[in-house]
């Protein structure tokens, strides 16, 4: 009897929640059970309402962009481009180290001012990786990521002024990467007791940088060539989200909205299922952090009814090209 009723209830829930039928239609199909069914189907409707939150469209679109960028970066690796790329990365890192040792600070200092469309830019990035590698604490790493984020913003400005939107997009991905790396530190600080000074420092730094970078990018947007504006808008949007996220973690609430995303002058919408410019991108970095293969048996609390599978999160550094 119970089993039969459970089957009927299940069928009615599918009809109501998935097929959009009304409760009355279902009750009419099972008049003998209608008195027992009706209150439970009302509760089911309540449960449906309670679970009807939606993500913000702009976040959904930005997350899709990041997923597709990661997808393409991974595909290039699979095609074997990465083998050369990886060797090149290590070679660049080696060269940077060698330059540091042999030529002293001069060569690397020269690369510090190089731009994404110049040969020394790879040396600059390699030098940054070396610097990051030798930075010990997470908080110091986070501050260094913010420093590099500022460099990326300046590079975006120059690339936009040079009317090189593809370079703006490349650098924007690097900017997003730096801001993403700040998040776990902000989260960890926000959760720890007795780290008030670190929290205050990082929060102030984040707020300062967020305001400064917004002002720089918005100012550039107003005078940039038309062709560069969509990618500049993307930079504004992603950096805004990056800072907001980090600030939310460190504040633990919604007081952190460091800037509002301004409407973009172009008609191109973030909600486009697949914006053409995403198609054009050839990502150099993957926004995801490589982590060990997911464990098929992650610990699951009692309440989770023995579920296991991939899903652990990690905050490891990963190499930029």
């Amino acid at each position: 009897m119970d089993r039969e009723f459970e089957d009927i209830l299940d069928e009615c829930i599918d009809r109501i929640t998935l097929r959009g039928e009304g409760i009355e239609q279902c009750l009419a199909s099972y008049p003998a059970y209608s008195a027992k069914l009706e209150p439970l189907l009302q509760a089911a409707l309540s449960a449906t309402k309670a679970t009807s939150a939606e993500p913000r469209p702009e976040f959904k679109a930005a997350a899709k962009y990041r997923l597709l960028s990661a997808l393409r970066a991974g595909r290039e690796k699979r095609r074997g481009l990465s083998f050369t790329g990886r060797r090149w990365r290590w070679a660049t890192l080696g060269v940077a180290l060698l330059l540091l040792l042999l030529a002293g600070a001069g060569t690397v200092a020269a690369s510090t001012n190089s731009l994404p469309d110049e040969p020394l830019y790879r040396v600059k990035l390699a030098a940054e990786r070396v610097q990051m590698f030798f930075t010990a604490s997470d908080t110091a790493k986070a501050k260094l990521h913010l420093k590099f984020a500022e460099r990326r913003v300046k590079e975006i400005v120059v690339m936009a002024e040079k009317d090189k939107p593809e370079k703006v997009e490349d650098v924007t991905r690097r900017l997003s990467y730096h801001l993403e790396k700040v998040r776990p530190v902000a989260r960890a600080l926000g959760e720890k007791e007795g780290r008030g000074k670190d929290i205050a420092e990082l929060r102030a730094l984040l707020q300062r940088k967020a305001a400064k970078h917004r002002a720089i990018l918005q100012n550039t947007l107003e005078r940039a060539p038309v062709r560069a504006r969509p990618s500049l808008n993307r930079a504004l949007e992603l950096s805004g989200q990056g800072y907001d996220k980090a600030l939310q973690y460190i504040l633990g609430d919604d007081r952190s909205r460091s800037w509002e995303i301004r409407p973009r002058p172009e008609s191109e919408g973030l909600n486009d299922p697949q914006p053409p410019k995403i198609q054009r991108l050839t990502p150099l970095i993957s926004p995801i952090t490589p982590s060990p293969p997911p464990s098929p048996a992650s610990p699951v609390p009692q309440s989770s009814a023995g579920i296991s599978g991939p899903g652990d999160r990690s905050g490891h550094e990963h190499n930029l090209p």
């Binding site: 997350a63 997923l67 996220k245 997911p294 899903g311 999160r313």
Partner: peptide, 18 residues
């Protein structure tokens, strides 16, 4: 909301990795 969005994005990136 922010954490839910972040975790949702992580789910898809994790799926891509795995």
């Amino acid at each position: 909301r922010a954490e839910a969005e972040d975790l949702t994005e992580q789910v898809f990136l994790k799926a891509l990795q795995s």
